[in-house]
Amino acid sequence: MATYVVGDLQGCLDPLTALLEKAGFSVEGDRLWVVGDLVNRGPQSVDVLRFLRSLGFAVTAVLGNHDLYLLALAAGLPPKDKLGDTIQPVLDAPDRDVLMDWLRGLPLMHAEGAWAMVHAGLLPQWSVPQALGLAEEVAENLRGDNWRGFLLELFGNKPTQWGESLSGWDRYRIVINAMTRMRFITPEGVLELKPKGPPENAPEGLIPWYSAANAAWRTHTILCGHWSALGLRDMGHVVALDSGCVWGGKLSMLRLEDRSVFQVDCPACSLPGGSD
């Protein structure tokens, strides 16, 4: 049995099925981990959700920012009409409710052995066990009867700094923003959500989240996506897997047992520009 971890799909099913075939993935014996952003911008968001759901216990996926945005739209959030969004076909699908129930049952974070998977990253103050507990607090609300009301309160950029005393919406919001949107922080671990460029061009006073000294999560190797400008990078303590499939780049997958990398090109998913 092998465990494969694939980067951001963003509605690109054909590259995923080609990549699984290339790696020799077996649904009967292997496992597939997905780092989030299953939907949006690509042309096959509905098909991606249906395919992953069909894999049953063979798949383990975490939520990304695009997935939460889809759930919020399903909950009644007015759409932002962003150029390039391709979410509406999911909302119009006859099995929409089944797909939304499956999606909101996914966690923000998953950990096994020495590995931990999250869409964007972890704040340096958080150990992996603490982060898993915080992710579960959010998951309980997403699985609950009031999931619609919960999602409609979550969008916003504040607070920007973690504190044990945070509660309610402030607590949930910073957990979600860190785990699904974060790229840069201050050396003290304060979130800065606006910059999106490559880590080499970090704005003055900011560092990539994974560069924080003495981060409590360093007991594990973090598997993440979200940052297409970062690309595929195995940095030892962090493996970044978003290699820009939806922007005409590649879809990347890591086999955990030997850290082998598998890639396929994504021309059919190519969109102009380049943004997460």
Rank of each mutant, 00 (worst) to 15 (best):
E153N: 15
S54C: 07
L223P: 03
V128A: 07
R218P: 04
L52V: 00
R96A: 10
D242Y: 09
V48M: 08
E200G: 12
W33I: 07
W209G: 07
L134W: 14
R218V: 13
L134D: 01
A72L: 03
P89D: 00
N40T: 09
L151E: 05
R104D: 02
P94M: 03
R143Y: 01
R143T: 04
L68F: 04
P43E: 02
E137T: 13
S165A: 14
A93G: 01
V27A: 14
A178I: 06
L9H: 00
F25A: 04
M109N: 06
P208S: 11
A215M: 04
F25W: 14
D85E: 12
V62D: 01
V128K: 08
L38A: 09
G197I: 00
V48H: 06
L49H: 03
C245Q: 11
Y69C: 11
H66T: 04
P208Y: 12
N40W: 07
V27H: 10
D276M: 12
V62G: 00
G273Q: 09
E204N: 09
S26D: 15
K194I: 12
D47Q: 15
M117I: 07
V34R: 01
A213I: 05
A75H: 05
N40I: 02
H220E: 00
R183A: 08
V238P: 12
A72P: 14
A2T: 14
W115H: 05
R143I: 01
W217T: 06
D101A: 15
S228V: 13
D234V: 09
A131P: 04
D37R: 03
W169H: 13
L151N: 09
K194W: 10
S167H: 07
G29W: 09
D234L: 13
D242P: 00
H66N: 13
A18Y: 11
E153P: 07
A18C: 13
G11C: 04
L132E: 08
C269L: 04
G113C: 03
S260D: 15
L73Q: 10
D258I: 09
L32K: 08
K80C: 10
V98K: 13
Q125P: 00
D85V: 09
S252P: 10
P267D: 11
S211I: 06
T60N: 02
D67E: 07
H220M: 05
D92R: 14
V34C: 14
G144W: 07
G133T: 07
A240Q: 13
E28L: 14
L99P: 05
V264A: 02
L134C: 08
H110Y: 12
V264R: 11
G36L: 03
V246D: 05
S165R: 15
A202S: 15
T180G: 08
G76Y: 06
I87P: 02
L241K: 03
L99R: 01
S270Y: 07
C245A: 13
K196Y: 06
